[in-house]
């Protein structure tokens, strides 16, 4: 049973979004990290890059496979979690605590298209 946090928004591709100080804080779900296994590398965009909802913005790599990360919302990247450069396994340790990027949203209404915790829970069959 994977951890799901109430009050966050979730994408079908297993990213979560938390709105904090007007910014979209984005990470991957506990379900996603468990499916990936040991994460060995997080490929992140650069600050000031533009990301587009539904489009790939980076990737998680485990020993065996790369898994693309998709932006749940559009906007400009204002921060990347540099701790993941040296310690990508933090995502395995706590996928909700260890966010990946923060985005200044260009269209906050895109949040409405995402799932709430209950809908996400149902979507992963838990």
């Amino acid at each position: 049973m994977s951890k799901i946090i109430e009050g966050l928004k979730y994408s079908e591709s297993h990213e979560w979004v938390k709105v904090e100080d007007g910014l979209a804080v984005i990470g991957v779900t506990d379900f996603a990290q468990a499916e990936m296994g040991d994460i060995t590398y997080v490929d992140m965009p650069d600050v000031d890059d533009e990301v587009t909802a539904g489009e790939e913005f980076g990737a998680l790599e485990s020993v065996k496979a790369a898994s693309d990360l998709f932006a749940p919302v559009s906007g400009k990247v204002v921060a990347v979690n540099e701790a993941l450069d040296d310690t990508p396994e933090l995502v395995n340790e706590d996928a909700f605590e260890n966010w990946i990027i923060k985005v200044e949203m260009s269209d906050p209404s895109e949040l409405d298209a995402l799932m709430d915790a209950a809908a996400y829970k149902a979507s992963i069959g838990e």
Binding site: T40, Y41, D43, E61, A65, A66, D85, P88
Partner: peptide, 8 residues
């Protein structure tokens, strides 16, 4: 390669 990125 000189990085932790993974060539697949």
């Amino acid at each position: 390669i000189e990085d932790k990125a993974i060539p697949r």
